[in-house]
Every structure is written in C-alpha cells, then in structure tokens.
Design a protein around this nucleic acid. Sequence first.
DNA 1: AATGAATGAGCCTTCATTCAT
DNA 2: GATGAATGAAGGCTCATTCAT
Lengths: 211, 211, 211, 211
Amino acid sequence: MHGATTAARDSTREALLEAATEVFSRDGYHDATVREIVSLAGANVAAVKYHFGDKLGLYTEVLRATVLGAGHALVPALVDTDAPPEAILRQLIATFVHRVLGAQGSQGRFLLIAHELARPTSVLPRLVKEIVQPNYDRIRTLVGRIVGAPPDDERTCMCTLSIIAQIILYARTGSLVRLLRPALPLTRARLDRIARHIADFSLAALRAQRA
Amino acid sequence: MHGATTAARDSTREALLEAATEVFSRDGYHDATVREIVSLAGANVAAVKYHFGDKLGLYTEVLRATVLGAGHALVPALVDTDAPPEAILRQLIATFVHRVLGAQGSQGRFLLIAHELARPTSVLPRLVKEIVQPNYDRIRTLVGRIVGAPPDDERTCMCTLSIIAQIILYARTGSLVRLLRPALPLTRARLDRIARHIADFSLAALRAQRA
Amino acid sequence: MHGATTAARDSTREALLEAATEVFSRDGYHDATVREIVSLAGANVAAVKYHFGDKLGLYTEVLRATVLGAGHALVPALVDTDAPPEAILRQLIATFVHRVLGAQGSQGRFLLIAHELARPTSVLPRLVKEIVQPNYDRIRTLVGRIVGAPPDDERTCMCTLSIIAQIILYARTGSLVRLLRPALPLTRARLDRIARHIADFSLAALRAQRA
Amino acid sequence: MHGATTAARDSTREALLEAATEVFSRDGYHDATVREIVSLAGANVAAVKYHFGDKLGLYTEVLRATVLGAGHALVPALVDTDAPPEAILRQLIATFVHRVLGAQGSQGRFLLIAHELARPTSVLPRLVKEIVQPNYDRIRTLVGRIVGAPPDDERTCMCTLSIIAQIILYARTGSLVRLLRPALPLTRARLDRIARHIADFSLAALRAQRA
DNA sequence: AATGAATGAGCCTTCATTCAT
DNA sequence: GATGAATGAAGGCTCATTCAT
C-alpha cells in the first residue's frame, strides 16, 4: 500500500516536472502559465503548491533536474582530452550548434538556459555560478592555448566571448536571423555548415591573434 | 511664446517617451507596466492612449527611436564612401560599439533591443524590414567585397552574421557577461579596445576566407 | 465681421448636429461615442461641451431637431382626411413600412426612435408624450372606427397594438427576422408586399372583430 | 453529504446565474457590468472567469436558460399533437404569453430577450439557429395548415411573423407599452385576455387568408 | 495526497469630461 | 469661439495563489 501510494505520488510529481520542462523551455519562466502546465500534466492547479510550493519552486526544480543536475558533464568531457586544441574547439562548436539549434522536445536544456539568460529570474546567479562560469573558464583555457596567452589575458577572454557570441546569436536571437534570412529548414547538413563556418571563422581569427 | 507653447505641449509626450524608454529597457515590453511608466512620467494612464494609442504604440515609438539612435541611421553615410572596405568595416564596428554603450543610460539602449530579440513582439518584423534589413544588406555587400564573394553568397551572409553577433553579445553588459566578468566601468578607452578586438578578430577571419 | 463669426459658429454647430444625427441614428445614444461624432464633423471634442454642454445635451438637440420638431406632421396629415378608415389605415401602414425599413442616411428619424425605445434615455418620456402618444391616440381612434368601438375600449387598444407590433417587428427586431429568413434585398417591391400583407392581415382581423 | 457538497459547490455558480439574470435583464448585455453581478452574487470577479469563461459566456448561459424557460422547450410537445391546428395555435399563444409574463420576475424573462433583440450580441445567431429557428419552422408548418399553403410559402411566413410580432410587443411591458398605457397589474385574468385577443385577432386574419 | 472552487491584486483599455491656452 | 492636451473613473480580463473538503 505504501509502495502504491509512493508510485502514485511520484507519477503526478513526475508528470508535473515533465510538463513544466516542456512549457518552460518553450515559453520561459515568465510567459509560462501554471494552468497550461498542470493541464498538460493532467493534474490540478493546487498540485503545484503541494509538491513545489509555488511556480518558482517548480521552475527551480525543473532547472535543477534538467540543467544543473545533468549539465556538468558535457563540456568537460569534450575539453579534457588529449586532442589538439583546435580540434577540440571545432568539436565543441559543432556540439553546441547541434544542441542549441537542433533542440526539440525533451532536449530543452539549452532553450531553458537561453530563456533564463534573456530574462533572468532569481535562479540565474546560481545557474551561472554552477554551470556557465566553469564551462566558460574551461573554454577560456582552451582558447588561451590556441592563441598562446594565459586564460586570464584580456585578449583570451575577448576571443572566447567572440566565439560564444556566434553560437548564441543563432540560439538566442533566432527570430532576428529568421527575419533577415528566408526561413530555411534546419537540416542536419545545414547545421553542419553553420558549425563549420563558425569554427573556420573563429580559428582563422585565433591563429591571426597568435602571430 | 509659441516655442514655449510647443515645448509645454510636447512635454508630456517627451516625458512619457523618456519614462517608457527606461522602463521598457529594464523590464522588456511584456513585463513593463503602463502604470509605472505614466507614474514615472508624472502623467495619467489615458495620456498613453492619447499620444500613442496604446502600450504597443508607445513601445513602437521607443523602439524605433532607440534603434535609429543606436547607429542604424549612420550606416549609409559610413558605408557609401570611397574608403577601403576594411577601413569602413572597422569604422562601422567602432561606431556601433560606442553608440550602443557610450550613450547616457550606459546600457539602456541596448538592453531594450536585447529584450526585443529575446522575446519579440509584433513590432520586430516591421522594424527589421524597415531599418535593420537594409543596413544588413549594406554591410553584407561590404563584407562581400572583403571576402571576394557576392553579397548573396552563403559565406558572405554567415560572415556578416558572425560580426553582428559579436557586437550584439560583446557590447552587451547584460546578465551573462556581467555575471561572467566583473562589471568594469565602460570607459572610453575600454570601448575602444572592445571595438578594436572585434575588428581585428573579424578582419583576420575574413582575410582567411578570401584566400 | 459679426456675420462671419456667426456663420462660422453656426457651421460648426450644424456640422456637429449633422454628424451626431448620423451616428446616433446608427448606434443609438449609448453606443455612439463623442469622438466619432466630432471626428466626423471635423470638430474638436471640447466643441460638444461648448455648444451643447455634454453628450446628452447634444443628443437631446438631435432628437428635438430630427423628431420632435419635424415629426408632428406625418401621422395627422394621413389620418385627418375624409378617406374611408380602411384606406387610411392601409396608407398609414405602407408609409411607416417604407419609412422604417427604407430608412437610410438622413432618413434617420425612425431609427432614432427605435433606438430610443430599445434603450431609453431620460429623454424618452418627453418623446413619448409629445410624439408617440398623440399618434397612438390618433391611430386608436381610426381603428375604433373600423371595429366599431370607442377609442378607449380595450379591444380597440389591443387591436391597435397588434397592428403596431407587426410594423415594429421589422424595424426593431430586424436582426431576428434577418436570421430567421434569408436576407433578401429590401427592394421597393418587397416593401410593398410587406406593407400589403400587414394591411390585409390586420384589416381581416379588424373586420372579424366588428362582426 | 454528497448532496450538500454538490449544493455548496454549485451555490456560487447558481448565485452568479441568478444575479446575472437580474442585471442583464435590467440593463442588457452591454450596459451590465460584471462587477455589479458578482457583487450582487456575493462572489469575486474571477469567479465569472472560472465558471463561465467570461462575461459573454455567462450571458450565453443566462440567455439560453431564459429562452428555453420562456416556452421554447414546450413548442414541440404542443405542436406535435393530433388536435386541430387552430386549437394548437391558440394553446401555443396562451402558453407563451403566460410563460413570458407570468413567471416570477414579472417581466425579467422577456426584458432580457427584448434587450437581445434590440441590440444583438454574437450569441443571437447561435441561439436562433439552435432554438428559435426550429420552433419557428414548426409554427410555420402549423400556420401553413391553417391558411392552406405550404410552410415555405411567403404568405405563410409573413403570417407567422405577424403572430410572433404580437407576442413580442404585446406581452411586453417594456418602455413603450408601459408609457402608452397605465401599468396594469398583470393578473392571471389579464394575461388570459391578452392571449385570447392575439389568438382571435390572428385566427381571424388567417381564416381570411385561406378564403 | 489531491482537488474543485474561490480569491485578490493587477493589467490594459476606453470614455466622457474638463482645463489652459 | 475653439482647441489640443490631460484627466479620473470604470470596465473586462488574467494570473498565481489559497481554501475547504
């Protein structure tokens, strides 16, 4: 009996989390409405209060489960290898582009971050501290190795941001890009081309910095 | 006396625009409330209807003024000269960086645009069509001349976007950058360094594309 | 100079009255907006206050000019003749049907009354007392002559209302009729048929009452 | 206990419907305010949204209940019998007159419909299509049998409308009739006389059409 | 553990009206 | 005699939240 109860409880809680992940990813924290989430989860409005206290509690939980909990591994796994730095960077860019632009459904991790960056909630500082900052530092170190400068060097930092900027442009200001250019279907091949361009463009710039 | 009258007549309108710029920049269109704007402007709620029709009308006016003030009005004058393409591009980047960040509200101007890009309203398409697109086309042509490719070439377009991306993110003192790096005072010298970095980074990349 | 001033004053006043007649006839007092009226008249919002005090003042003036002033003549002219009562009634019905249904533009007199009856303002009592009641009494006398009963007889009154009801149905609940029957264009011939039907129907009923 | 729960649960909804019927009947849809309704019902503004979606949803519910209660639900049972057509029509008229005026609020029921006809909302078309039109068709068939013409014949339709018109205006104690005649108490005997008059008047006219 | 019902604060908008010129 | 500008009250609606069961 206790097992069944637990299962039932978890099922509602899980459904809520799943629905919230989808809606928060699509609309961001501010635009998402509790009612759409509970409706999608087949649950009641008050269930949010019961399980998570309030909307922000639910959001925090979603962020924790989706990003904070699972996001630690990606960048380190790519960066901390013995491959040549340029190859690593290229791989890093490709991975992000595909994740960011190819995101759909449960792949909402990056959309969640994008929304959070665009309109921060009180959760942002922790998100940045735990996820973004460490990854930024890792990439900075990588870039530093390519340009031949310490990670803290201003040039290194600026170059890193220049690279990140290009990836973010597509993820965050997708609407602008879509308006400036005819809406091409984002095929896998097209994503490859975008990634390759960013890598080529950036590596050329980095090499020039080194000289 | 007539001048005074005009000044008096327009003063509410001006106050409204000023307050709206501040509030919209801080909160974005959706979170901003008309009530705070009019209260800040020392005006009545109905004044917004009288002068701008509704909240969106007021926002449109603010956004248009901001985008034009952000340097877009200068693009034709800068681009359509006989100077060497690389010099033009360098100048263009410097102009945008200074305009965007060097104005009074330090970051108000760009925050507004950042909000709009992050969470577009119905104004964005028209704004892009009327102001941004033509300038984008101009810059694309310029970049095409540098990389030795037609303006419509995919590489040309991607390179152009890569440059724009850096200005958008880089010049930005928004949440991400502010959190990643200690908030440095944006001195004139610092803006110069940022602009020079973007130009160096991008021109090196473009030259590499040409070869 | 004084003449010119007077002419100018009257012209604005007249324009307001004309525009108000049109708008009040179309929308009724409650739905009409002062702004549409002054916009149509090419005048300023405050002109209403100046010339008529307020919206109700303007409405009263319109009603007076359109209905109270000019409406006295129609029914008496038709009724107070030596023609046989049945012919008079037939003519009365035809006239009203054409006026009520054929109304367009400046012919707003009946529309104004219809709106006023549907949603009375404080002007209604006077309107009824001065226009409607006398005409009702006249028609009652006429009907009384046909059924062979005094004007105050309950049967006479009921018969009169039965006739009026048929006319009003088309004018007042036009939307219902239009929904129940396909929207035929109200040609002159069609109005004639409607009028003839009401007359035939009613006279047959009246004759039966007499027997 | 479950009954009590249901009663308690529906009590706000019921109170809302009752208050809305009163206010909508007095002021019509456009002039009625949600705030007065909820205040009268001792409920909150948001309760309207919860139970009926919005003001129009509440109004739709009220109007539907009123129209059905006004006798429309009984038409099929009355018409589809083997009684002689004239007796059926007489019974139909009596039923409507008593239903419409004899209910509790004395005139509330019909005032609501009168308002709707005078100033239709978007609900009218659906209401007519779903409820009124079928009954109109039934009555038309009945009238057709009396005058000896097909239900679609123009004369049949016009005669039907002439009868309906009398009920609509006649039974009404609205502004016009109330002003034209001293407000008599609507005793049962008086309602009988009104109904008998309409039936006598109309049947005489119909018989004349047949000849 | 969960729910249907209800709440209150707040939003944008609209209107007739009035003020200062 | 006339106007552009400004006002305040009010209206419908939406949302996250909470209560009683």
